[in-house]
């Protein structure tokens, strides 16, 4: 899923300082799972913004709303009845959600309340790690199910480099060396030989090097 983290309150407060009526919009998908922008976080942020205003003797109107999915026009449409009644929108969704809202409601300023981080998986309660870079040409089938593009700090396709110590990456003792993991997994699968096949230079076009990406499924379009 897409992971995110709330922005520093100071930044959010600065964005909304000229406005009195705010529509604070969460999303029920990824940002809910990583506890950055779901219903609960919408409530907490609203409360923090209220506290901040009360401290200055001001009041602010905050309408809290959490959409099923902020990156889908169908759900973004649900905001339509609120739009005329607010001065600004603060979105707690990932960058896709923020842009969907901004694209639909052109007259109302939209501000992000989270920093969208990476495509990751939960490795333990409260801990998420990057797993996918969305390179558009998945090679997990030949790398033992461990991605060198997302998990090697130099995204080497023919690693490991010389900086590995005790199975950890040279950048930090907290980061596992992807190539050590790949090697261990290939061994477990009895596929050691595969390591010596040279992986050719990657075509980065599907990864975004060819410009913004798009998927068109004609069978699904209306």
């Amino acid at each position: 899923m897409i992971t995110a983290e709330q922005k520093p309150l100071k930044e959010i407060i600065e964005y909304i300082s000229p406005y009195n009526r705010i529509l604070l919009v969460g999303c029920n998908e990824c940002v809910t799972v990583c506890a950055a922008g779901g219903r609960k976080e919408v409530g907490l942020l609203a409360s923090a913004l209220h506290l901040n205003c009360l401290k200055q003797g001001k009041t602010i109107e905050i309408k809290e709303l959490t959409l099923e999915r902020q990156c889908d026009p169908e759900y973004v449409e649900e905001l339509v009845s609120e739009i005329g009644r607010v001065d600004a929108i603060v979105s707690m969704a990932c960058g896709c959600g923020v842009q969907s809202v901004a694209a639909r409601y052109k007259e109302t300023p939209v501000f992000p309340a989270v920093n969208t981080k990476f495509m990751g998986a939960s490795v333990a309660q409260g801990i998420w790690e990057e797993r996918c870079k969305g390179c558009g040409d998945c090679m997990l089938g030949i790398t033992g199910g461990i991605c060198p593009v997302a998990r090697c700090s130099k995204h080497l396709l023919n690693g490991p480099c010389g900086g590995t110590s005790y199975g950890m990456c040279e950048i930090s003792p907290d980061v596992e060396c992807a190539w050590c993991l790949i090697w261990e997994r290939l061994k477990a699968l009895g596929m050691e030989k595969r390591y010596e096949e040279i992986m050719e230079a990657k075509d980065w076009r599907p990864a975004g090097g060819g410009g913004p990406r798009k998927i068109i499924r004609e069978d699904l379009s209306l």
Binding site: K40, G43, L44, S47, A48, H50, L51, L54
Partner: peptide
């Protein structure tokens, strides 16, 4: 006790 309960108390 959730974070929101503590926040609301202050609010």
């Amino acid at each position: 006790v959730d974070a929101i309960h503590m926040m609301k108390a202050f609010e």
